Simulated assay, not measured.
Amino acid sequence: MADPLVSEALKKAAVAWVSVDGGPALALWCMPIDDALYIVSGRGEQDAPGLAYAEEARVSLRGDHGGRIVTWPAEVTRVDPRSEEWTTVAPQLAAKRLNAPGTATALVERWAAECSVNRLVPAGDPEEPGDASEAAPPRESPAARPAKRPFRLHRVRGARR
């Protein structure tokens, strides 16, 4: 039985921030089914490096107002396209997939051939929230440079100092 806060957050999840092997947390579209999150990744779908073959991950979920409310360790299992679970879950995921090319049946077939559907289940107690916002520092970029004062050719009329 999962923690009550995790269970409640799972029910309302549409996006989860998932970190695999200590990497950066990526915002991924997900769908909750039976106290688990299902995530589709791969060619033509969202990019989730390492998730397809991971055994564990770290998941953060947001509350009604967009802020993080809970972070928990998850056990990751890949759903086999030949399994009974696939026949139950994949059509539900395909029905909820926005802007999908083609029919839901064609989408499920493509996922079976080219993508990964993973099941994330709570695997421990949620982490203590702490004081950290989990905001990452800005990445280095060659485009970043100090801002200069804006150039003004003429004085703006009506502006008084």
Rank of each mutant, 00 (worst) to 15 (best):
A135S: 13
P137R: 11
T87L: 15
V79T: 07
R161A: 12
V18G: 08
E8C: 08
S7P: 01
G50A: 07
T105M: 08
P91N: 02
E56I: 11
E109R: 09
D64A: 13
K12I: 05
P24V: 12
S141M: 05
R139W: 08
P150K: 13
W86I: 03
P73D: 06
R145W: 10
A74P: 06
P73E: 03
H65V: 14
A57M: 00
P137Y: 05
E55G: 15
A144T: 12
A16Y: 02
M1A: 15
T103W: 01
P4H: 08
E128F: 08
E84F: 03
L120S: 10
P49T: 07
M1Q: 15
I39E: 01
E109T: 07
A27Q: 08
T71S: 15
D3L: 06
M31R: 13
E75Y: 10
P91Q: 02
H65D: 13
E114L: 09
R152M: 12
K96Y: 00
K11F: 10
K96L: 06
L153N: 10
V121H: 01
G50S: 09
E8P: 03
E84N: 08
K12T: 11
R82N: 10
V108K: 01
G66N: 03
S83P: 05
P129Q: 03
C115A: 14
A144I: 13
I33E: 09
G22F: 07
R119A: 09
V121P: 04
W86V: 00
P129D: 06
G44V: 02
P142M: 10
T87Y: 15
L10R: 00
E114F: 07
V20N: 02
L28E: 07
L120C: 13
V76R: 02
A16C: 08
S19F: 06
D47R: 14
A54C: 05
